[in-house]
């Protein structure tokens, strides 16, 4: 006879950990994008990754970890607030830059390969 309780508990913690880990990886991808991308308007998109998918995955992981408790409800509240405010804040920043006359780089942009970045910066 197998005891199912501990197995399910382990499964729950594993799922929660996996969600949080994937979320954190997306967080790092988005942050590296904010560092790497060439101009302001493209950086917004990288910040968008951290604001949407990474946030959802991290909060979902934490909610699975917390189980059906008050903590979970509060985490859901954090998620709702972030999802309501983040597009407005992003739009406000983009709109302010646009109104201030900051010109986006359009056409095809190819930022330098990571291994060339140091060389290019020394040249410039």
């Amino acid at each position: 006879m197998i005891e199912w309780g501990p197995v399910l508990e382990l499964l729950r913690h594993g799922t929660a950990g996996a969600f949080m880990l994937v979320g954190a990886i997306f967080m790092l991808i988005g942050s590296s994008g904010v560092l790497r991308l060439p101009d302001f308007y493209t950086r917004i998109h990288a910040a968008g990754i951290t604001d949407t998918l990474a946030t959802v995955l991290l909060l979902a992981g934490m909610m699975i970890e917390a189980g059906f408790t008050q903590t979970s409800a509060k985490l859901a509240l954090v998620g709702i607030f972030l999802f309501l405010t983040s597009p407005t804040a992003t739009h406000a920043v983009a709109n302010a830059a646009h109104k201030a006359g900051l010109k986006p780089r359009l056409g095809t942009v190819e930022p330098p390969h990571p291994r060339d970045v140091d060389i290019n910066e020394k040249k410039g």
């Binding site: 998109h45 990754i49 190819e110 930022p111």
Partner: peptide, 24 residues
């Protein structure tokens, strides 16, 4: 839709030889 778009943008950012085609 957000998840789909996230994966596309993440793939674009992770490529060492990034090619962006920004448009307004």
């Amino acid at each position: 839709e957000i998840i789909k778009a996230n994966l596309i943008v993440a793939k674009t950012i992770l490529r060492p030889n990034m090619v962006l085609t920004p448009r307004m």
